[in-house]
Every structure is written in structure tokens, then in C-alpha cells.
């Protein structure tokens, strides 16, 4: 049943131009004896302007999928296309350039630089890219995540939800083509989580941001446009705009 599900998924996603596309991607870890197939011949296209949630049991390859799609991890086989760029063929300089302009990341552990203020964290990608930083634009981005007031605070002086919103602002400040988020609400309480999800929804609806988000939380997955399910490194199911209960039920079937 897995193969038809994957094919069907590809077809449905293929109607609008893809922001990111994986073609037959596999990723293996380990040596000859104890090999782990974290991703096993995965083909998927994420349409421009869509918000896709990736779900699956622990160890099913969700993070690996995200890392491969974002060019953070080398693939063992297959191809990753980000618009017109082939990530699997890109060298480090090209990947760096893409990280500056086309790709944004948000992770469960917020990964802010502890020594920099919220504002400095947000402007860092622009500075690294050698771009002039307009104070107004930065304040705008911070305001859009509701943190204009706290811009001079350092990460440890912010709550988890606030730190995650700083991380989102940092990811968005370069106006990336795709935002990759790995359990962005995983470390947050439900109120902060809802706030973050609302923020992501605004970005999708407002500027047509493409988002690929790994999550364990059915409620978070239900905020996305569609949900795909991974198991043992393969895409096994998908659902378009499901309810949280529906997601939970499908996930239970996978894990059971």
C-alpha cells in the first residue's frame, strides 16, 4: 500500500510549481553491518505557497527528510531540487549562498546565539550576507512576531515562546523561498505553540510563504494545509487539511 500512497501524493502536490522537490531520495547511516535507512527512496514535491506538516513515529526519518530537503545533509541517492537549484550537486559556497537567501530554518531548540540580543540575532543573516541592514525593516520583522519591545533582550531573558518567535523572525528576515521547521512548537506550552502556529499561518496566507514543518502534535499538524506521514523512511500516507482528531487517528494507526 505504500507505493500507491506515495505516487498519489506526488500527483496531488504536482499541480502548482514546486518550491522544493525530492526525487528518489535515500539517506543511509552507519557502516556495512548496522545500516540505518533513515530515508528510503522518497519522492515528494512541496508546492509553492503551501504549508506541509510531516508526521510519523519517532525515528521514522522526519528530521532526516527535512535536513536533506534543506541541503544540510548529503543524500545517499536521489536528487533535491530547490526551484532551479540542484542541492545535491551544489558545493559549499552555493549552499551557503542558498542558506542566505532561499532557505530559512527553525528548530525545536531555538538555536539563537546566546550572546546576541534578539535584534542582533535577527540581523545576523543579513550581515553575514553583506547586506545593508535597515533598522526599520528589522523592527518591522520583530514587530510582526510581536517582539518589538524585547528587541534588546538576550535569549536567556526571553521565554521559550518568545525565543522561538525570534528564531522565526531570523529565518524570515531574508525572505526565504522555503521555511523549514523541525518541531517548532515541540518545546513550547500550548499558548505559545498556538501563537507560533498563528504566525506561520499569517506568513503562508499573507506572503505565500512555503513551509515544511515536522511535528509530533496533531493540533499543530492540523494548522497546516496538508499532512504527510512517514514510517521507516518512506512516505506512507497523506491527508489534505485534516482535523486534529483525524491526524491523531492516522498517526495511531501508524504507530500501532
Amino acid at each position: 500500500m505504500t507505493a500507491p500512497a506515495a505516487t498519489r501524493w506526488q500527483q496531488t502536490a504536482g499541480r502548482t510549481p514546486a518550491a522544493v522537490e525530492l526525487r528518489g531520495v535515500s539517506r543511509h547511516y552507519g557502516g556495512k553491518h548496522a545500516q540505518v535507512r533513515a530515508l528510503d527512496d522518497v519522492s515528494v514535491a512541496f508546492a509553492q505557497g503551501s504549508w506541509t506538516a510531516v508526521m510519523g513515529p519517532s525515528g521514522s526519518g522526519k528530521s532526516t527528510l527535512l535536513h536533506c530537503a534543506a541541503g544540510l545533509e548529503r543524500v545517499s541517492a536521489g536528487q533535491v531540487l530547490l526551484g532551479e537549484h540542484d542541492l545535491t550537486a551544489a558545493d559549499d559556497a552555493e549552499l551557503t549562498a542558498l542558506r542566505r537567501s532561499e532557505i530559512g530554518f527553525v528548530f525545536q531548540s531555538f538555536n539563537l546565539i546566546a550572546s546576541l540580543t534578539a535584534e542582533q540575532n535577527v540581523t545576523l543573516p543579513l550581515k553575514l550576507a553583506g547586506q545593508r541592514v535597515s533598522a526599520k525593516a528589522v523592527r518591522q520583522v520583530l514587530a510582526s512576531v510581536g517582539l518589538d519591545e524585547r528587541r534588546r533582550h538576550r535569549p536567556r531573558e526571553l521565554s521559550g515562546g518568545q525565543q522561538q518567535r525570534v528564531a522565526i523572525a531570523r529565518a524570515m528576515v531574508t525572505r526565504p523561498r522555503v521555511l523549514f521547521a523541525d518541531e517548532p512548537t515541540g518545546a513550547l506550552d500550548s499558548t505559545s505553540a498556538r501563537q507560533v502556529l498563528r504566525l506561520l499561518r499569517e506568513m503562508v496566507d499573507g506572503v505565500g510563504q512555503t513551509i515544511v514543518m515536522v511535528t509530533h502534535d496533531p493540533a499543530a499538524a492540523a494548522s497546516a494545509d496538508s499532512v504527510m506521514f512517514l514510517s521507516d523512511g518512506r512516505i506512507v500516507d497523506h491527508a489534505r487539511a485534516p482535523s486534529a482528531a483525524e491526524v491523531a487517528e492516522r498517526l495511531a494507526r501508524l504507530e500501532g
Binding site: L72, D92, A93, T96, R99, R100, F105, N111, I113, L124, P125, L128, A129, R170, T174
Partner: peptide, 15 residues
């Protein structure tokens, strides 16, 4: 780890 983080948000090797 800090340097990897810099790389993650777009720092090149040379930087």
C-alpha cells in the same frame, strides 16, 4: 557549536 550556528544562518567558510 556557535560556529556551526553561524554557518546555519548563512556564514560562509571564509567568513
Amino acid at each position: 557549536r556557535d560556529l556551526a550556528l553561524l554557518r546555519l544562518v548563512g556564514a560562509g567558510r571564509g567568513q
